[in-house]
């Protein structure tokens, strides 16, 4: 039974899990690669046999930008790329730290909070004990 034969596509499965407070990424049963964003076939080997696994949630900032916005329109916010321990990268934001203290190499961990449009979204906070 492969992913292609199930009811929902991987985008919908991911979104449904997230709505239930569960952050999972795909893992290829063909080659073992982790996969994000959710896909129908593994970009590493082409297998359609992708399962869902919980990542550790730990990651490292790869790049960051601060979008500059007037205070009356909500003020500045950060946008980052995070490399998860599983070897996949995702866009996110980092909460709980001043924007200008976020830099490549910062260790972060995932949680689920609200995205820009009120939707559930994966966000990160600095790892406790990390600088």
């Amino acid at each position: 039974m492969t992913g292609m034969q199930k009811d929902q596509g991987p985008d919908a499965v991911f979104a449904a899990k997230l709505a239930e407070g569960v952050f999972e990424i795909q893992k290829c049963n063909g080659c073992g690669a982790h996969v994000f964003h959710p896909r129908v076939i593994c970009p590493a080997c082409g297998s359609a046999d992708l399962g869902w696994v919980a990542p550790t949630g730990r990651g490292t900032i790869y790049a960051r930008t601060i979008v500059r916005r007037k205070p009356e329109r909500g003020g500045d916010y950060n946008v980052v790329l995070v490399d998860l321990e599983e070897g996949v990268r995702m866009m996110a934001r980092v909460d709980g730290i001043a924007h200008d203290e976020i830099a490549a190499g910062l260790q972060v961990s995932a949680s689920i909070a609200e995205g820009a449009n009120g939707e559930p979204a994966v966000v990160f906070r600095p790892e406790r004990g990390a600088s």
């Binding site: 790049a63 930008t65 979008v67 946008v79 996110a92 934001r93 490549a104 820009a116 979204a121």
Partner: peptide, 26 residues
């Protein structure tokens, strides 16, 4: 894009900003 929209990057500016940030870091 679906997996970027929750974070409101400026399109396309923030994408290039991330590339510039990484180039400066690396």
């Amino acid at each position: 894009p679906t997996y970027e929209a929750p974070y409101k990057p400026l399109f396309p500016l923030s994408s290039y900003a991330l590339a510039a940030d990484r180039h400066m870091t690396q």
